[in-house]
Write a protein that binds this DNA or RNA. Structure first.
Ligand code: ZN
Ligand code: ZN
Ligand code: ZN
Ligand code: ZN
Lengths: 411, 411
DNA sequence: CAAGGAGGTCACAAGGTCAT
DNA sequence: ATGACCTTGTGACCTCCTTG
C-alpha cells in the first residue's frame, strides 16, 4: 500500500487596482487525480481597496516572518534563538531576502566571503587549516590544479549544460566558449556566414543538440550577450559571486520543488493517526474548505462577483479610484481626505495579517511540519499579492507565475 | 582620409487613431550630404488598428528590454542587474519610466548618488582563522576596512576607467596599477619585452580595450608618468586633495556641455573590413532597405497610401472606429463584438514584438555594437509609438520630437 | 592614530594545442 | 569543426607599511 501525502499551504490575496477591488481568492489545490483526501484552509473576504501593493507586501512579509521565526517549538538543535537580534540589524521591514538569508546562515551553507568563499565544504573541519604544516597526504607537487571548482555557477546560458565560467560576458560551458571564439574570427573577421540548418533560425539548443545548427548557436550566443567588449577577466567581485550563488540556489530550489520525491515507510496505524489528526485540524480551522470547490461553494461565488464586476467595468469604463498622487496633493493642499482609503487599508492590513497568522497556525498543527527546517517551512507556505487583470480563480499557484500578465510580487 | 561612421537604428511604429491605421513607417536617415554608404533595416507593414497605445508601448518596452537586458551588461559593476532574481527585488516588469530614467541618468544629476549607495557590506573581518593565538586587539567598534573612498578622483590616466588612487605617480585604476607592477618586473628586471599587437604602437586604450595590447598599455603608463621613482605614499596633503576635486569638477562640467565627438584612427584595411561586414548584414537582414528611399520604393508607396487615406477622410469625414466605451457597452449588452479589434490587436502586437527583436538582432551584428554598455545601446535604438496627426514619412527621428503635436511616447 | 599606497595572492578567463 | 586541457596574463581583495 502506498500513500502520497502532499501538503500545500496556499493563501492568496489579490488586489487589482484596475478592477477596484481586493479579493482574497481561491486557488485550486494541485492534486493527483487519485487523491483520496485533501485538507486546507481559506480566508476569502471580499472588499474594495485602493491600490497599494507595496504595503500589503510588507504586511504579509512581516506577518509570515513573525509567525515563523518566533517558533518556540521544533527541535533541529541550534534553531532560531539567534533570530531575535537579526530583526534589529536591519531597520527595514524585513523582506524576503532577509528571511532567506537568515535562515541559510543557520545551516552549514552560508554565503561568507572570508577572504575566500567557503561553501558547504564536505571537509571534516574543526581542524585549523593553518599555516604551512603538512596536513595533506595527497600533496600535489604539481601546480594546484583545481579542475572542479565553481559549481556555484548557473548553467550554460547557451546550451544549458554545466557552465565552466564567465566567458565573453556570459556564463557558458567550455564548448560554447570555444565555439564563440572561433565564430568571432569566422564571422567578424572573415565575413563568413553560418546558415541555419532548418532555414528559419528557430533551432532548439537542447542537451546534445548543441552542434546541430551553428547559425542558431551563434545567434543564441549573441542573445545572451556574448561579445568581445563584454570580456571580463580576473577574480570575481564578492557581489558578483553572491549573485551567482543565490541564482543557483534559487534554481536548485525550483528543481527540488518539482522533482524531489522521497518516500518513507509508515505503518497502517500511523497513517490512520495522521489522517485522524488532519481531519481534526481541518475541522478546527476551516471546516468548509473542501466544500468551497463544490458547486454552490465559495469558488462559484467568487467567480460570480468577479464576472459582475467585469461587466460593470466594461459598461462604465475603468472605475479605478483617484490615484495616490492626486489624493496626496489634495490632502496636503486642503488637509482633507478624498476618500476613506486610509482606514480601509488598515482594515485590510489587519485582515491580511490575521490570514497569514491563521495559515501558519494551521500548518503548525500538521504533524511533522514543525520538524522541518525554517526554509523548508517557508517553501511550503505561499502567499500571493499583486495586481492581476486576469482572473486566477481556481488556478493552482504554480500557474500564476506562468500567466503572461506577470504578477507584481510573489513570495 | 577621414571617414564618419554613423550608426542609427530607428524603428518606427506609428499608430494614429484618427487615421484609423497603424503603420510602421519609414524615417529618413539623418545623413550628411556627402555620405557614401548607409545601412539599415525596416519593418513596414500597413494595417489598421484600434487605438490602444499603452499596450503597444508595453509590448515594445518589454521586447526591447528583454532583448537588451539579458546581456550581462559587460563591466562597470553598476550596470543593470540581471533579471532572474530581480523578479523579487523589484518585481515590476520594467516599464517606460524605468527605461527613460535609465537614459536620463546620464545627463542630469544622477552624479549625486553615484556610488554612495553601499547596501551590502561584505563582512570579511573579525574572523580569525588561526585558532590558538589570541585575537588581535584591533577588533574595535570602528570599521577597519574603508574600501572605497570619496571618488573625487579623476579617471584612470591610462585606460579611462574609474581610478582607485594614486599609483606609481599617476591616478590609475586597480587593474592598471597591477599591470604596471608586473610590467616593471618583466621589463626592468627580467629584460623581457612587450610587442605591439598591431605592430606600430598606436593602439587605443578605450573602454574594454585595456588588455588588447600590453605594449601600448605599458607605453601609456610611462607616458602618464608612472615610475618606480614617482611613488608617493601616505596621506594626502590638503593641497593635492583640492586639486583632484577641482579637476574632477571641471571634467564633469565639460562632459555635460560638449557633445563628445571622439575620432579614432583606422587603417584602410579596417575600413574595408567594416564595410564588407556591413554589406553582409545589410543583405542578410533587409536587402531592400536602401531601395526604399528611391523612386518607386517603399517611401513612395507609404506616401501614396497616406495621401489616399487623407483624401478619403476629407470626403467622408473622420472615419475613426467605434470608441472603446461603445464597443464595450455593446459587448456586455449583447455579448457580440462590434469589430475584430481584439484579434487585430494580437496580430499587431506580435508583429511589433518581432520588429523590435529584428532590430536588436540587426544591431547586434554591427561590429562593436555589443561592446557598448547597455544604456548606450539603448540610446542608439529608437522606437516610436504613438498617435500622430501629422505625417512623418521621410522625416528623421529627431524631427518628430519637434513637431508641435508631441508624440505620446518616446523611448 | 587613520588615511592611503605598494605588493602579494590566487581565483578566473582568453587563447592556444591537439586528439578526436 | 569540436572540445578537453594547458599556459599565461589579469585584477579583486588583502596585508603591511609609510606618512601627515
Ligand atoms: Zn554551452
Ligand atoms: Zn538553426
Ligand atoms: Zn586603468
Ligand atoms: Zn599596440
Amino acid at each position: 500500500m502506498k500513500y502520497i501525502f502532499q501538503i500545500e499551504c496556499t493563501d492568496t490575496i489579490m488586489d487589482s487596482w484596475n478592477m477596484d477591488f481586493l479579493n482574497s481568492t481561491l486557488l485550486t489545490p494541485d492534486l493527483p487525480s487519485d487523491t483520496d483526501l485533501f485538507f486546507g484552509i481559506g480566508d476569502f473576504p471580499l472588499s474594495d481597496s485602493p491600490p497599494n501593493h507595496l504595503s500589503f507586501d510588507s504586511i504579509c512579509m512581516s506577518a509570515l516572518d513573525k509567525e515563523l521565526s518566533c517558533s518556540p517549538s521544533t527541535d533541529s538543535g541550534k534553531g532560531d534563538s539567534e533570530d531575535s537580534e537579526s530583526i534589529i540589524q536591519r531597520g527595514e521591514p524585513e523582506n524576503l531576502e532577509s528571511i532567506i538569508q537568515r535562515e541559510e546562515s543557520d545551516d552549514s551553507e552560508s554565503i561568507v566571503h572570508r577572504g575566500e568563499l567557503e561553501i558547504s565544504e564536505p571537509i571534516n573541519k574543526g581542524e585549523s587549516k593553518d599555516s604551512k604544516l603538512e596536513q595533506q597526504p595527497p600533496k600535489k607537487k604539481h601546480r594546484k590544479n583545481q579542475p572542479p571548482d565553481a559549481e556555484h555557477l548557473p548553467p550554460c546560458r547557451v546550451c544549458g549544460e554545466k557552465a565552466s565560467g564567465l566567458h565573453y560576458g556570459a556564463n557558458t560551458c567550455e564548448p560554447c566558449k570555444g565555439f564563440f571564439r572561433r565564430s568571432i574570427v569566422k564571422i567578424e573577421k572573415k565575413n563568413e556566414k553560418y546558415v541555419c540548418a532548418k532555414g528559419d533560425g528557430s533551432c532548439k539548443l537542447g542537451t546534445g543538440k548543441r552542434t546541430m545548427c551553428s547559425y542558431c548557436r551563434y545567434k543564441k550566443c549573441l542573445d545572451v550577450g556574448m561579445a568581445h567588449g563584454a570580456i571580463k577577466i580576473g577574480r570575481y567581485t564578492h557581489e558578483k559571486r553572491t549573485k551567482d550563488i543565490t541564482e543557483v540556489r534559487k534554481l536548485k530550489l525550483k528543481e527540488n520543488q518539482t522533482v524531489d520525491t522521497t518516500s518513507i515507510d509508515v505503518t497502517e496505524q500511523e497513517v490512520d493517526e495522521l489522517v485522524a489528526r488532519l481531519i481534526v485540524i481541518q475541522e478546527e480551522f476551516c471546516a468548509d474548505f473542501r466544500k468551497s470547490f463544490e458547486p454552490g461553494g465559495l469558488l462559484e461565488k467568487h467567480t460570480f462577483v468577479y464576472e459582475r464586476f467585469k461587466e460593470k467595468m466594461e459598461t462604465f469604463g475603468n472605475l479605478s479610484p483617484v490615484p495616490w498622487s492626486t489624493y496626496n496633493e489634495f490632502l496636503s493642499a486642503t488637509g482633507l481626505e478624498l476618500d476613506d482609503r486610509k482606514s480601509r487599508m488598515n482594515l485590510i492590513a489587519a485582515r491580511m495579517e490575521q490570514a497569514v497568522r491563521n495559515m501558519v497556525t494551521f500548518a503548525r498543527n500538521i504533524p511533522g511540519f514543525s520538524d522541518l527546517q525554517t526554509p523548508d517551512q517557508l517553501d511550503l507556505l505561499k502567499v500571493f499579492a499583486g495586481p492581476l487583470e486576469v482572473p486566477i480563480f481556481g488556478q493552482h499557484f504554480s500557474q500564476i507565475t506562468h500567466l503572461e500578465q506577470k504578477p507584481k510580487n510573489r513570495f
